[in-house]
Design a protein around this nucleic acid. Structure first.
Lengths: 351, 351
DNA sequence: GTGAAAGCGCTAACAC
DNA sequence: GTGTTAGCGCTTTCAC
């Protein structure tokens, strides 16, 4: 245990159970309050001897500056907030980590929260962060309507949206090219001879899902292929729903010979379904995932870079915090098609 | 845009670029400061009419309570900190998410940071969280020496360690039974006829790695099998090192017929090595991981539950925060052997 | 080089 | 029901 109060000095000890303050340190070191503040913050103008006395008192008392008080005076908290759907999702975890890394370089702490894709919870989280006066926010929006953020933006909270655009709000934005990525993925299947291709993805209310559907339709149109509505299944990504739709599409009268999946979770579920099947079905998934290369067949994907998404978003954020007064930027990151086998399977029955 | 300042009322407008305060709201609503505080905090004793005027002013000004000031008075911040190795690691991500969920239920916000397995960084992060006066801390310790935390504990910061014990500090602790898990995993290989079994794992300075090695040795001793030192490779978990050690063990004169791997990252690397091999080598890995069941052969694992680790740790934390003055607890969670195929392969060459 | 005083925005305690 | 006052622990300003 660190020694908490000296005995016999006659100096006041900090309240029991509370924490020592600069005042306590000042009393113990027999200097003024401001001198302690100087030492704690590394400001110049303190003699080496005085500094030593202050440092000794700090150690003896176990003093730790109270940043709440500091923030109250200084205005800036040195922390940024990140709100996304689910921290544990393999797509968002590296994004979060990347934001944290950039924040660290800028001396800021990251506070993050999961919205669970619930607009009310997103709002609640964001406002809690604003009440804590984070200097900036990185948001993967769940809701459609972000007008609740207007007072915050007006008050100077730097805000960057990632992965999806916010509902009608001018702010920095970093996106992956979902349309182009999906189009190239589906075109890849077409190039390998497929004419009946299904798409399974997230709820079309989610921007990325809608864009990927648009990319699918564009690739089909490019090849002058018709799209049957039974080949399109966007919605809830619960494994049961996805598995049911996949099963439906690959069985029956004129089954699809290839599937395009809208994100990593959907892809994994579909891989499970296809593994049970006698007949091979080609597959291209949006999002890369670990072990995709070790499955049989290895899974061809349209890869995006979640770490870069986070890095670029954080970089934009700190550029704003450093005072850049430019108009909002919109950054679109490219995807990369990674052929591994599943996307190069030919149509099964010589259609 | 929300209207920022009324025109023609003659009331003071908040400073430009700053944020409106309760005082500003009070002026605009023509009530006292305390009345605003009552409304903002949902305290009783405000007439419906007054309340409406205050709420209107809040909306019009875009007021948001400044929690820094609030914390300064109240002492508690309503936030807890989590420090672990890497937020993006598939083992820690669900742990973090579980802590977040419990925190949310208790109305607290989670601030988390990655230590990157660097004791200095862990310390820096923890102290930054303490300066922000988090009410409690959940720590996956990277370092050996946690005496720097003593003043914080003395000041009443509730602290729970997870996954690994801290260096010489009495605090709540939630662990997985690494020893028992490893012992059962290796015993499983022995039961399937293996006599030359290798172990590849993390640096033995890490508590879980040391415990798993101890479990391995215990299982071998139980079966009266010798352990050659060339079968033991603990250290850096960089893929290159792990792959080199795995390759060394499964080739050469008297190769091992089975491997036990110390965590999910190591397991995945070893799976990659074994996939290149002509000869089958049995494998049991510590930690479950996604898609383990879809590999060929499917990977047998000793599963632990990272979500439960986080949940239990957070539960202990909030129990302390709610004032339980019990002595520190140590909780050990059991593991579960999940046979899937790779661990049931017989020794290859009829040894 | 050092320190005293004011005040950041809020809540607690106590008036009225 | 409502308002006034003091003060949380720090930084800013300015005086010595």
């Amino acid at each position: 245990m660190a020694e908490i109060a000296p005995s016999g000095t006659g100096l006041p000890a900090p309240r029991y159970g509370g924490r020592p303050t600069m005042k306590d340190v000042a009393a113990r070191a027999e200097v003024g309050l401001k001198t302690v503040s100087r030492v704690v913050n590394g400001e110049p103008g303190v003699s080496p001897d005085t500094e030593r006395r202050v440092r000794d008192a700090i150690t003896a008392l176990g003093f730790r500056r109270n940043d709440s008080a500091r923030v109250l005076r200084k205005g800036r908290t040195g922390s940024v907030g990140l709100v996304l759907e689910d921290l544990a999702d393999p797509f968002y975890a590296p994004l979060s980590r990347a934001v944290e890394e950039v924040a660290r370089i800028h001396g800021a702490l990251l506070i993050n929260g999961s919205s669970a894709e619930d607009p009310a919870r997103e709002r609640e989280l964001v406002l809690a962060l604003c009440a804590r006066r984070v200097d900036g926010l990185v948001i993967v929006p769940a809701g459609e309507d972000h007008r609740y953020l207007e007072p915050e933006l007006a008050a100077g909270v730097a805000t960057v949206f990632v992965d999806r655009p916010p509902g009608s709000l001018a702010a920095d934005l970093v996106l992956t090219d979902s349309f182009g990525g999906a189009r190239s993925g589906v075109a890849h299947l077409v190039a390998h001879g497929h004419r009946r291709i299904g798409i399974i993805g997230d709820h079309p209310g989610i921007h990325t899902a809608a864009e990927r559907l648009r990319g699918y339709r564009a690739a089909m149109a490019d090849a002058e292929l018709p799209v049957r509505e039974s080949w399109v299944a966007l919605g809830d990504t619960a494994p049961e729903r996805v598995a049911a739709d996949a099963t439906r599409m690959v069985t029956g009268e004129r089954p699809v010979t290839a599937l395009f999946t809208g994100n990593n979770r959907v892809t994994v579920t579909v891989v499970r379904v296809l593994a049970q099947l006698a007949r091979p079905v080609a597959l291209v998934g949006f999002d890369d995932f670990e072990l995709a290369d070790l499955l049989s067949p290895p899974v061809t994907v349209v890869a995006q870079d979640p770490g870069r998404l986070g890095r670029d978003a954080a970089a934009l954020l700190f550029r704003r915090l450093d005072g850049a007064g430019e108009p909002p930027r919109r950054v679109t990151l490219p995807t990369r098609l990674v052929p591994r086998g599943s996307g190069e399977l030919p149509p099964y029955d010589g259609e």
